[in-house]
Amino acid sequence: MSQIQQARKFNAWGKGIEPEYGPQAPAPTAERGSAVGIRIEGLDKSFGSVPVLRQLDLEVPAGQFLAIVGKSGCGKSTLLRLLTGLDEPTGGRITFTGPGGEAVTPNARIVFQEPRLLPWERVAGNVAVGLGPGQGGRPAKEKSLAALREVQLDEKAGDWPAQLSGGQRQRVALARALVSRPDFLALDEPLGALDALTRITMQGLVERVWREQGFTALFVTHDVGEAVALADRVIVLDEGHIVLDILVEHERPRLRGAEDLARIERQLLDAIFRR
């Protein structure tokens, strides 16, 4: 844990240390939100007679950035859907825990692989959806604008989603997930549909908002390099089991292609392909 906190003193993605906390850049205004821990005990999920997750045990400390990788059909998206309440487990238990270890109800949000924006709402309206029903008026508008500012899209607030590029739409989806200050954010291959360069920018953005807001992050991806670049900890799922669970304790920002990161990547790929 101390490693993780250590790592968080650094900021930004790619070049230099702390360029965005520097004197010329505005300091992050948002105070860091809360985070929940996750305890998974003996989790089972099957669709009909097909088991997808078997007797899964996992403990995620509050504020951790956890990445889950694995082949298609390994159960990683299913685990995400169970954690966010989209599906019900067949057996076992999921508990979210507060600072004292007591069970709490999380304020969980999801970013899907597709942006899933409402085409008939303008960008700001789509972000306001993230505040939940019954929220409206000026405060909602201001919160939405603030969230858009965090993903650097505030000047597009009045546009229709159809007028945005794929990467911009996904940034709106991220703003929608962040606007309610979640303590648990699940990302289901959120960058899978983007081109390679947009992905790198988006990875930096995801890392930055996670550091600023401090939520617990669950990042499902099929891109091992992405997992290693972003996460504190990477888990490999195979046929519903955890076959590898490693901590990535490198300082941030991490340089893509660094030798020791590449070694972890290889280790993960070996586990995925059972080499």
């Binding site: 899933r116 959806v129 939940g132 029903p133 929608r176």
Partner: peptide, 11 residues
């Protein structure tokens, strides 16, 4: 997918 999104966001 939009309906699922709506439900996730409490609608």
């Amino acid at each position: 997918q939009l309906i699922e999104m709506g439900r996730v966001y409490g609608m």
